[in-house]
Write a protein that binds this DNA or RNA. Structure first.
Lengths: 108, 108
DNA sequence: TATATTAATCGTAATATTGCAATATATAAA
DNA sequence: TTTATATATTGCAATATTACGATTAATATA
């Protein structure tokens, strides 16, 4: 999506931005939302759930996996996807830091 | 970034995806990180802080503003930007829901 | 008024994303 | 072994994003 000067930012910033980016598409939010309500999941069910082709969903699943937001294991002809919670606290912490009490005297 | 079938998702999903998308760039994460440490801020200081041109930063600030993640008021020749915390809880809640205890029997 | 300062906007080039159709791959079942 | 089922991958075409330089707009100051 255009040229990003990734070399100029800290690992920490880049890591968060990448995770948020992976979350920055309705299909992927919907997939995670769906997975959060399941104990396990097969890709096919997601295809039935979302208004996208199987190929598109496969791509989104792959992006989520690359970002470390889901993990999957192959079982027979189906693949089981689950949410990988490892990265979530990092994002929650960042968001909480944004809320943290500051004296907003200028823009309010 | 390609054609997204936004009309097919719920408002709730779209809203979250849009916020995450706005957070999905290192420059914008860095801007928010910087703003979180200030009580007030002038755009010029951000320009000095980041490895981007003034024009690029102005665009990122505008995107953050459009997303409702910052708010700004013009004061003299400078503009004061602050974090708008209104949307944050929505994201925190979503992330927490992803972590929420589920019986992951399949992918572990 | 003229000049300096600050931030927004415009134009353009490079690159990334999205979606679908078609195809490939792999396992299960007949 | 053949066929069916399920998921992944590839190859476009359309569109969005990013960054920068140059310019513009607006205010402050001399």
């Amino acid at each position: 999506m255009g040229i990003t000067k990734i070399e100029a930012y800290s690992e920490d910033i880049l890591s968060k931005a990448q995770l948020f980016k992976a979350l920055g598409h309705p299909a992927r939010v919907a997939i995670l939302d769906f997975l959060a309500k399941q104990t396990s999941c097969i890709c096919g069910e997601i295809v039935a759930e979302l208004p996208l082709s199987q190929a598109s969903i496969s791509r989104h699943l792959n992006e989520l996996k690359d970002a470390g937001l889901i993990k999957g294991t192959i079982s027979g002809t189906s693949v089981c996807y689950c949410i990988n919670t490892d990265q979530i606290p990092q994002l929650n912490q960042f968001l909480n830091q944004l809320i943290s009490p500051i004296d907003q005297t200028c823009c309010s």
